[in-house]
């Protein structure tokens, strides 16, 4: 599963960790996160994330 990095603030979404505070369970692929989810650090939308190389 790919990690995704927020191009605004540098936060990395790790699918193994998820974002439990926002109801995203560990093991959730980035692609499967709802579209209205936003970066827990800076508030950027999903469209501002890129696959981490």
């Amino acid at each position: 599963m790919d990690k995704y990095v927020c191009t605004l603030c540098g936060y990395v979404y790790d699918p193994e960790v998820g974002d439990p505070d926002e109801g995203i369970e560990p093991g959730t692929k980035f692609e499967d996160i709802p579209d209205d989810w936003y970066c827990p650090v800076c508030g950027a939308g999903k469209e501002d994330f890129e696959i981490q190389e």
Binding site: L8, C9, C42, G43, A44
Partner: peptide
Amino acid sequence: LETRMIHWPD
């Protein structure tokens, strides 16, 4: 108008 990261998240 939200202007996130210009220049803070808020």
